[in-house]
Design a protein around this nucleic acid. Structure first.
Lengths: 184, 184
DNA sequence: GAGTAGACTGACTAAACAGTCGGTTTTTTC
DNA sequence: GAAAAAACCGACTGTTTAGTCAGTCTACTC
């Protein structure tokens, strides 16, 4: 693994554990086994390092989701696959997922960076809105999506807080059917 | 307003805007119009100030919710009232709500403080679990609660991101019926 | 094997930080 | 109205911070 990758990996770990301001560049360098100068050789500032981590995680997730639903038949199956893929990604990339949620709530991430992140999910938002409008619903696609996504995140939080349930696939099925009720 | 209250109010505002580590005690004092010494006279450390804000907001919310549902008939109405009260509190105490969500995601808040916060909602969690077990569900009360609460938070996020919908009461009703589907 | 470009180093710096302290003002109590 | 207590002040301190810089090392090219 290159030193650059070592820095990114260590930073992700430390940021998740101690927050952005709670982790110094010196700590990252030390734990990654590089000099402080090396960190600033690869990333011109701490902010740039954080941005790269945030957008990297978002890209990873977006690619993962897109791959999971390319050959799905119909909208219902597509959403089902996306749901399972998202939950699966979250529990198998726990620190990335936590980092992620931390970013969404943190004022450290600027508006422009956040927008770049949202843009990576445009494909999904469009599809979802299309589904809703074709059903002639009385509520907007975005409202429905926010509630649906919230329910999904709620379930993931439950899995992460109760690790023994992480691999309980029947539970996943029930949880999906509960989330699906929102749309049905 | 006492200087103590001025400090708390200013701190809430600045923390929500710039994060815990992004806000110095000097900034809080300055904007609150007091000396740095005064801040440390009332709160023995920055950490204690944050704890007080976090637990204060939680207590406020818990009291508000409890008041909203004391004379409710039956579990369904109780949950309905709690739902509307929670959404209402969130949009009318926006900065407190945001601060709150930030705390939940931030590693700055220690486990023991977080537990104290959760304890304030014990009354609600117990009721909710009771409801679920009496229905003989195949899924645990906590799982259901996490999904339900996630959906509710998703809707609040939607309202806060789309301020023009904040007072759209018919939308609230639809959103509640969607969340209720999860339990039905 | 000389030349060179980029990776890497770690001691260093200027600014910012949480928290202190000796002293002053305000409020309360008798 | 004197004495005690509590609130308040802001200059100060030792530490930590992000980021720099002058120079070394490594790998590749011609």
């Amino acid at each position: 693994m290159s030193k650059r990758e070592q820095i990114l990996e260590t930073a992700l770990e430390l940021f998740t554990e101690h927050g952005f301001r709670g982790t110094s560049t010196a700590e990252i360098s030390k734990q990654a086994g590089v000099a402080t100068g090396t960190l600033f050789h690869h990333f011109k500032s701490k902010e740039e390092l954080i941005e790269e981590l945030y957008l990297g995680a978002k890209t990873d997730l977006a690619d993962y989701l897109q791959a999971a639903c390319t050959d799905a038949n119909g909208m219902e199956e597509k959403i089902k696959r996306l749901w399972f893929a998202y939950v699966n990604w979250a529990i198998s990339h726990e620190s990335q997922y936590r980092f992620f949620k931390h970013c969404e709530a943190s004022p450290y991430i600027g508006e422009s960076v956040r927008e770049k992140g949202v843009a990576k999910f445009a494909f999904f938002i469009e599809d979802f809105s299309a589904l809703v409008s074709e059903r002639g619903d009385k509520v907007s696609g975005m409202t429905l999506l926010d509630i649906f996504a919230g329910a999904m995140d709620g379930f993931i939080r439950h899995l992460l807080n109760n690790p023994e349930t992480k691999t309980d696939k029947p539970l996943w099925d029930i949880a999906f059917s509960l989330c699906w009720k929102i749309l049905g």
